[in-house]
Structures are given as C-alpha cells and as structure tokens.
Nucleic acid binder design. Structure first.
Lengths: 191, 191, 191, 191
DNA sequence: AATGAATGAGAATTCATTCAT
DNA sequence: GATGAATGAATTCTCATTCAT
C-alpha cells in the first residue's frame, strides 16, 4: 500500500498536538501544576509517554506552547483598533470583551494565574506576557490621560488590578461568582 | 550548669520551629514552590534533614502550618469589633489595615496566591481560609446592606476582588506598584 | 517507460545500502558511538527511519556490516602472495601499504579502534578480525623466523603493536601526526 | 544515642566513594562503556541507585573522577626528576616504569583507551590528559634532541606510538601478550 | 518500496522520608 | 536531640523497533 501523503501526516500531527495540549490544559487546571506529569497527560490522551516527545520537546515546552497559544487567542481582542486610542464606547466594549474572553476560556486563565505565581515558570513566559500586556496597558493609560485623570498611571494599574481580581475570583469559584452583576458594576465604575 | 528545664526546652523548640517556617517561607517565595526541597530548607535553617522531621510531620504539614500561622496573624485585623458591624470610618480603617497587612508580609501573600491556584494544596487550607474569610465577608456584606446598596452581595464580591487584584499585583511586582496612590484611590472609591 | 528490471532494482538496493553504511560510518566517526541513532543516520541518508529496517536487520547488524566490509577491503592488501612468505622487499611494500590503507580510510580505523574497546561489540566481530589478522600475523611471524630472530613471536607482536600505535595516534590527531617521517622511521627500523 | 562524629561520616563517605569508583571501573572494563548504567553499578556495589547521586553529581562526573584519579596515580611516575631532562639510564628506568604502571592498573588503561575513541567523552578529559602528557612528551623530546636525533619530534611521536600500541595490545589480550619479552625488546630498541 | 506515527522498555535523576548511630 | 547515609518510588526523557497506510 502506498504511504500516507504529507498532508495526511500533517493533519494527524496537528490533531494530536491539539489533543495533547487540550488534555494537558485540562489536567493542569484540575489537578494543579505540580501534580501533572507527562505520564498522566499521555494516559489521559490515550497515547504512550514516548509519543509525547514526538510532539513536544519537553514538558516545559508543552506548557510554554499552551500558554502562548492562549495568549495568541487574546491578541485580537485586546487591540481593538490600531491607533491604540480608546474612545468611551470602545472602553465599554473592552470591558465586555474581558468578560467574554474569560468566560470562554476559564482553564487558560486558571493556568495563567498559576503561572504568575511560579517564578521559575513565569520567567519563561514573561516576554510574551509583556508583549501582549504592554500595548494593552498603554492604551488604557492613554484613555485615562485623555480623560484628564490626575494620576493616569495609578488609574491604569487600578483598572488592571480590578480586572485581575475579578478574573481570579471567577476562575477560583466559577459557580458562585456573580459575573453578570460584576460586569454591570464595572461598567458603572468607569462611566 | 544545671540542665535546662522542660520549659526552656519547649521555648527552644518553638523558636526552632518558627525559624524553620520563616526560612521555608522565604525560600518558597523566592524560588517558587516546586524548587524548594526539604534539603534546601534544612540547609538554610542550619540543621540536618533528619531533624526537620522532628519538628514537622511532613513537608505538606510544614506548608500547612506556615499558611495557617499567616492567617492567624490576620485574624485580629480582620475582625475589628465583635459585633461585625462596620461604620463608615471603620471601613476606611479597614482599607488602611489591608495595606498595612500586605506590606508587612509580602512573602506570606505570595505563598497564599501560589496556593490558591494549586487545587490539591488549596483543598487542605480551604477550611481555614473560609473560617477567616467568612466573617470578614459577612461584615463587608453587612456594610453594603446598611448603606442601602441595590446588590450588596455583588458589592462585597467586587470589593474582595479589588483587594485581591491589588494584593496580587503588588506581590507580583512590589517595586513598581504605586501602593500609596492605589490606597488613596480605594478610599475615594468607597467614599 | 518500461518498469525497472530485477537487476536494476538490485543495483539500486546495493547503492542505497552502501550509502547508508557510508553515512553511518561518518556519523559514528564524528559524533562517537553513543550519540549516533538510527534516526540521525536515516535523516543524513535522506530516507525514513522505517526504511532503514528494509536494508538492515538492526542497528547492531548495520555496525557489523560496516566493520566487516572495512575488513574485506583490507584482505587483498594484507595477503600479497598466496604462499604467505614475505621477502625483504615485500615487507617494505607491506609497510607502505599499511600507510596507504590507513590514510585512505581514516574513519574506518577510528570505528575499528572504537569497537576494539567495546567488549560486547568486539565479541561480534572477533571471528572476522581473527580470520583476517591470523594469516597476516602468521606471515609476519614467518618473516621473522626466516630472518633468524631469537624470539619471532615477540618480534611479530612488537611489529603489530607498533602498527596499532601508529594508526591509533594518527586517527586520534590526523592533522598533527607526522605520518611521512613515521613511515620512513618504520622502514629504517625494519631494515 | 549520640550521632556519628564528623570523622566517622567522612570515613564512610570515602569508603563508599572508593567502592563505587572501583565497581564502576570494573564494570566498564568488563562490559564496555555503553552498557554500564548507574543501575548496574549500584546493584554491583550493593547500594540503591539514589545513593549514587549522594556521592557523584552525575554519571559523567563519576567517569571523570575515575579517569582523573587514574591519571593522578601516574603523575609521580611520569616525572622522575624535576629538571625534565632524561639521562640514558633514566630513559630505561622510564621504560620499566611504563610496564610496571600498566601491569598494575590494567582496567584503568582499558578505560583510558575506551575514552580516547569516544569523542564526546574524550573532550571532557582532554585538558587533564594534556596536562599530564605534555611534560612527558617534552621530556622525551628533549631526550632525543640531546642524543642528536635528526628528527626528534618524529622520534618522540614514534616512541609514544609504540608505547600506546604495546599498552593497547596488552589490555586487549592480557593473557597472551608476551609482556616481558616486549619490555626487553623495547630496551634494546632504545639502547 | 516508503513513510513517520506509535510503542515500550529502560536510562538518568530527584527527593521526601526513614533509620542506625 | 541530631546527623546524614540510605532508600525507593516517581519523573523526565531517549531510542531501537514495529506497523498501518
């Protein structure tokens, strides 16, 4: 029989990669970081340990790729127009998007906050995080400057902290967190 | 010299315990959770590995005790008067205290947020966390109810989220976080 | 186009085999034994891992075939005439040939000495080595006997040792070894 | 009971280290390089795998230490007087010593020649080898210069090659190599 | 003939914990 | 109380080999 075509191999690879990343994200999200082993991921993905290394160079790389992919998905959302200037209505669109994004990817955010507090892992992703966060923060800063805030930097940090706090509490206890009213409250706060 | 009394031994023991816990907290805070071993703690504390087990049943127990002690220190602060009712000025005293508490024990809070996102560890401390947080949240809830808030639960969750967000960003990047202006901002927000 | 004949297939097959062996020899010679994997050989040879097993039963077999083929190439040289008797001038022709042979296949000799010191691999090739070396040694022994040496066996072993030492030092540091003057020195020694 | 004294621990450590190195050298010598695992060494030494790492940082380090210790034992022999000048009688003392040294440590020399042909391992020990070999070669070079040799460098390389060849053939087949007559032959050669 | 995904056995290494002294 | 040698289970990672296509 003839061998698989390159395309077929490519498809298999992409599916497997996605599957492994998915499974790894689930496991980390559920069992915490330290308890997830290559073995567990492989078992849950229904493949052998060895095959993991056909798709990812190392456990570290796998984590890195999961987190980077997660960030990449956020990219478009967090940069609504290219001039980096937020109008009032865009600010509120922004806030809504924050809530959409977190609700649609709880596990990623759980992983994100896990990593934030693991210095040795965070160091790995810091550059990427900065690359995404910086323009976002700059845009927000610009917004407060334009509004004539007395201390725009403080306002911006406050805004980011509030978002972090909300996200954090939401991923910690998804069921009981009143996301919808919090969203409204936030709109009100930045009216 | 006369042999030490039982009391003296007890005091020495307690000091040793406290020292070990202190060292462990420092190490975890600096090097992250996964990289701290019993060996490192023992070395930094100037004792042998074996002796660690004379003071703490297991590594898990050591962590648990660190976190519980940290919470115990917060107890008094977070329950200013026994009726659990906050006046306006008490609320602002409260806010100030939050900032004092975090600034005076950054490492503890770093550990706290580390553990928040480690499900299997968090499970261990959850009861304690609840025991401390519940009265606090109830008090805050009462405050917003008394103020006639339309959705006091949401207000309370928002308040807690904001505090978490601030603490989190502060412990993540202590040097650059504008703690003082954020504190003022917060007072303003809850005027 | 007409399909290839069986003969053509056979030729292609042989060429492929030879190429794989060549590539393997290069890799082993450059990167050492332990670091050469079937994967690397296949990649460098431009074929798939799987196909390797179409040409060679196992990694061990591949090594074996490389070394045996190397020896086969030496056969003719080391047995200049069939009576096994060396005249004086043949002895010197011999010495020259030793130098020609080693210079023309440094990598093979490097592999040869690698294997000499890997008992478990050497065991595999020992019979072949013996089959080639024995007549050679016998011939050399005869030479010294005919010359009336007091201890021809010792002379023969000495001669072989010297050759080994020269080869070894040459393959170890090809660039700096004064091969030509050593060759002359050797001729002088056995004048 | 009182704990062991520092001296007692020191003694235990030194004995264990020596034992492990001894066992490792034997195993490598008998089974070849690639087939010796930490597991095998531990088992033969009657200890757990884990304990190996209490004594040696890594497998690589263990090898390195074995080879360096072997070289250190040779140091004194290979530098008979400090001026680095060999008289005729010293040269012959030298030759005798070469034979004494190799006969008394066959396994070390087997390991040495194994390593010579493993580029990736040899790189590790090359500096040490050079440090020991260089003065030796310089001394031998001086000897041939003083004797008025036409090409002292070539003479020196030849001398080294012969020694290598002899050592190599001896460790390869200790039983059948006529060491004593070869020694005499060598004396004769450099009369 | 040809591919490369997949396997599985085994390698090095780490570390919480135990234990004889 | 105090030590650190010793254990053993678990972890990451490698690679020769097989196999469906």
């Amino acid at each position: 029989m003839s061998p698989r075509t390159l395309l077929q191999y490519e498809i298999i690879r992409e599916e497997r990669r996605a599957q492994i990343m998915q499974v790894a994200l689930e496991l980390i999200s559920e069992e915490g970081f330290a308890n997830v082993t290559i073995s567990k991921i492989a078992t849950k993905a229904g493949i052998s340990k060895g095959l993991m290394y056909n798709y990812f160079e190392s456990k570290e790389q796998l984590i890195l790729e999961i987190i980077l992919e997660g960030f990449n998905e956020l990219f478009c959302v967090f940069d609504p127009n290219k001039d980096g200037v937020l109008t009032n209505s865009e600010m509120h669109y922004f806030i809504d998007e924050v809530f959409v994004v977190i609700k649609s990817n709880i596990r990623f955010w759980r992983l994100y906050y896990m990593l934030m507090f693991q210095p040795e892992v965070y160091r790995l992703i810091e550059p990427e995080v900065q690359k995404i966060m910086q323009p976002f923060m700059k845009t927000v800063l610009g917004y407060f400057e334009k509004k004539g805030s007395a201390d725009p930097t403080c306002e911006m940090k406050m805004f980011c902290s509030i978002l972090d706090g909300i996200r954090m509490n939401f991923v910690m206890d998804t069921k009981n967190f009143p996301m919808e009213s919090i969203r409204k409250k936030l709109h009100e706060l930045y009216k």
